[in-house]
Structures are given as C-alpha cells and as structure tokens.
Deep mutational scan, measured.
Amino acid sequence: QVNIAPGSLDKALNQYAAHSGFTLSVDASLTRGKQSNGLHGDYDVESGLQQLLDGSGLQVKPLGNNSWTLEP
C-alpha cells in the first residue's frame, strides 16, 4: 500500500522509488517545479508512476532490470 502526499513531483517520485524498490533515472530539469497529486493505494510500478506523472506532460519508459526513466 502506497501513501504519498501531494506536492513536489521530485519528492513524490523519490518516495515511490524507495517504497517500491525500483531505480528511477531522471534528468532533474524534467521534473523541476512540477507538482504531483500524490498516490494512495496498491499499484504496480508502471501504473503508480503514470499516476504520479498525471498532468506533468512526462511519460514513463522502462529501461529493464527494474529501472525506469522519464521523457517528455
């Protein structure tokens, strides 16, 4: 069960990665100043990332080996 409060997208993504045990490689300029609506409930990694990114204009991309990145 994930419980991440709304706020900074950077912070939300870092909390989610730490909670879910995956690696997220992101260029900080992509997420700077963006906000997230947070995340509450049970999600697989990709669904949770998509939910956190909702409205940010960013997309999640798998890199393999439980690693992910973001792209515009």
Rank of each mutant, 00 (worst) to 15 (best):
F22T: 05
V60P: 15
H19D: 09
Q35D: 08
S29C: 15
L70I: 15
D42R: 13
A17L: 06
P62C: 11
S56R: 00
H19E: 11
N3I: 11
L30S: 05
R32W: 14
A12F: 05
G55Q: 05
L39W: 02
S29A: 12
N66F: 06
G55E: 04
G41K: 03
P72C: 12
S25D: 12
D44N: 07
A18T: 08
K61Y: 07
L24C: 08
F22Y: 02
Q50S: 10
V2T: 07
Y16L: 06
A17Y: 00
D10K: 06
D27V: 07
E46Y: 15
D27S: 08
Q35E: 10
S67F: 09
V45M: 06
V26L: 10
L70S: 00
K11Q: 14
G55D: 04
N65D: 11
L52V: 03
W68E: 02
H19M: 15
G64S: 07
A18P: 01
L13E: 02
E46Q: 12
L13I: 06
P72D: 07
P6M: 07
L58T: 02
V26T: 07
D10R: 07
Y16T: 01
S36T: 15
L70F: 06
D10Y: 13
S25I: 15
L58A: 01
L39N: 01
A5L: 10
G48Q: 00
H40Y: 14
G41M: 01
A17C: 07
D27M: 06
L39C: 05
D44R: 05
N14Y: 13
N37V: 09
S56C: 08
G55V: 03
L30I: 08
T23Y: 11
S29K: 11
P62M: 10
Q59A: 11
D54T: 13
A12H: 01
D44S: 11
S8T: 10
A5I: 06
Q50R: 15
Y16G: 00
D27C: 12
L13P: 04
L30E: 05
Q51C: 12
P6N: 02
D54N: 13
G57C: 11
T31M: 09
E71F: 11
Y16M: 02
P72M: 10
T69K: 12
G7T: 09
G41W: 04
N37G: 11
Q1M: 14
Q35W: 15
D44I: 07
G38Q: 03
G21N: 09
E71K: 07
Q1G: 12
H19C: 13
E71T: 11
G38E: 02
S8C: 13
G7P: 01
V2K: 01
Q35S: 11
D54G: 09
N37M: 12
V26H: 12
A18H: 09
T23I: 11
E46R: 11
S20M: 15
G41E: 02
S29L: 10
G57F: 04
Q1I: 14
L63V: 09
S29H: 11
W68C: 05
K11V: 13
K61R: 13
P6L: 03
A5G: 09
L39F: 02
G64Q: 04
V45S: 04
R32I: 14
H19P: 00
D54Q: 15
Q51G: 05
S8W: 12
S47D: 09
V2Y: 10
G41A: 01
W68N: 01
T31G: 05
D42T: 14
L52F: 01
D54Y: 14
Q35H: 13
D44W: 03
G21I: 04
G7A: 07
L63N: 11
G21C: 10
S67L: 12
L53Q: 01
S56G: 03
A5M: 10
G41D: 03
T69A: 12
Q50P: 00
L70M: 05
Q51A: 14
A28S: 11
G57S: 04
D27F: 05
Q1A: 13
T31S: 02
L9Q: 02
S56Q: 06
A17E: 03
D42E: 12
L30R: 00
I4H: 04
V60S: 10
A28Q: 11
V45I: 14
S25C: 15
G55H: 05
L39E: 01
S67C: 11
L30M: 09
A17V: 08
A5R: 09
L63F: 08
D10A: 10
L53G: 01
H40P: 00
T23P: 02
L53P: 01
K11W: 15
T31P: 04
L13K: 02
A17D: 02
L24K: 00
K34L: 12
L53Y: 00
A28G: 10
V45R: 05
G38T: 03
S67H: 14
L52P: 00
S56I: 06
K61E: 01
S25K: 13
V45N: 04
K61I: 13
T69Q: 10
Q35N: 12
G64N: 06
Q1D: 08
N3E: 10
Q50D: 06
Q35F: 15
P62V: 08
P72S: 09
S29Y: 12
V2G: 03
P62S: 13
N14R: 15
K61H: 07
N37W: 09
Q51I: 14
H40I: 13
K61D: 00
E46I: 14
S20W: 15
A5H: 08
L9S: 03
L24P: 02
P62G: 09
L53W: 00
G7H: 05
R32H: 15
L58C: 05
I4K: 02
Q59E: 08
G21T: 05
Q15N: 07
S47H: 10
G41F: 04
A18R: 08
T23C: 12
H19T: 11
P62H: 14
S20V: 15
S20Y: 15
L58V: 02
G41H: 03
N3V: 11
A28H: 11
G64V: 03
E71P: 00
K34I: 10
L9K: 01
G33V: 02
D42C: 15
N3F: 14
R32S: 14
Q51M: 13
H40A: 10
V60Q: 07
Q59K: 14
L9F: 02
Q1T: 14
Y43G: 03
Y43V: 06
D42W: 15
V26Y: 15
Q1Y: 15
